[in-house]
Each structure stands twice: as structure tokens, then as C-alpha cells.
Lab assay of single mutants.
Amino acid sequence: VIAMPSVRKYAREKGVDIRLVQGTGKNGRVLKEDIDAFLAGGA
């Protein structure tokens, strides 16, 4: 999974398994917005 360390930390704090999140950034990078969208109700 491609993600910046700050995004990985954010996901950990929110209790999200970053491997389950679909990245929308360049080359499938997971963004902070992707974590929020995942929490809001889905992949």
C-alpha cells in the first residue's frame, strides 16, 4: 500500500486497516480523504 507516513498514522489512530482502503491518489496512493471516506461508510 502506497501512503505517506502521516496518512498511515492517521489510519492507525482511527482504527482503520489501511490495506482495506481504496487509494484515489496518484498510482493508487491512499490519501487522508480516502480514510475519511472509508470511515463515512464504505470502500
Rank of each mutant, 00 (worst) to 15 (best):
D34W: 01
A37F: 10
V30W: 02
D17P: 06
N27R: 10
I18H: 02
T24G: 05
D17F: 04
K32V: 09
L39I: 14
T24E: 03
Q22L: 13
G25A: 05
V16S: 01
A11Y: 02
I18D: 01
G15R: 07
A3V: 07
P5S: 11
G15E: 06
G42E: 14
L20D: 09
G41K: 14
K26F: 12
A3D: 05
G41Q: 14
I18G: 00
E13R: 11
A11W: 03
P5H: 10
R12A: 15
A3C: 09
R19L: 09
G41P: 10
G41D: 13
G28Q: 06
V7M: 04
K26M: 12
G25R: 02
A3P: 05
Q22G: 08
F38I: 07
R29F: 08
M4L: 15
M4H: 15
A43L: 15
L31Y: 07
L20M: 14
T24W: 03
D34F: 00
P5T: 09
G15V: 03
K14E: 05
K32W: 07
L39N: 05
N27G: 14
I2K: 11
L39Q: 06
M4F: 15
V7T: 07
A3R: 05
R12D: 15
F38K: 04
G23R: 03
V1K: 09
L20E: 12
G25K: 03
G15A: 06
K32G: 04
R12G: 10
V21G: 00
R29S: 13
G15F: 06
L20V: 10
F38N: 03
T24R: 06
R8S: 06
V21L: 07
L20A: 11
F38A: 06
V30F: 01
M4A: 15
R29Y: 08
G41C: 12
S6P: 06
V16N: 00
L39S: 05
Y10E: 07
L39K: 05
D17N: 09
P5M: 08
R12K: 15
G41A: 14
G25I: 02
A43P: 14
A40Y: 11
R12H: 15
G41S: 15
A40K: 12
R12F: 15
I18N: 00
F38P: 01
V21A: 03
D36S: 03
G41L: 14
A11E: 01
I18T: 03
Y10N: 04
V1A: 08
K14P: 00
D34R: 00
I2Y: 03
I2Q: 09
R29T: 10
R8F: 12
V30L: 05
D36T: 05
G42R: 14
V16F: 02
A3L: 03
M4K: 15
G23W: 02
G15H: 08
A37H: 12
V30N: 00
R19W: 08
S6L: 08
L31R: 09
I2E: 09
F38T: 04
L39M: 09
I2L: 06
G42V: 14
I2C: 11
M4S: 15
G28I: 02
I35L: 03
G28K: 07
S6I: 07
D36Y: 03
I35E: 00
T24K: 05
G42A: 14
A11L: 02
R8N: 06
Y10G: 05
I2V: 12
D34T: 01
P5E: 14
D34P: 00
I2T: 11
V1E: 07
A37K: 13
A40D: 11
E13T: 10
V7F: 02
L39W: 07
A40Q: 14
P5V: 10
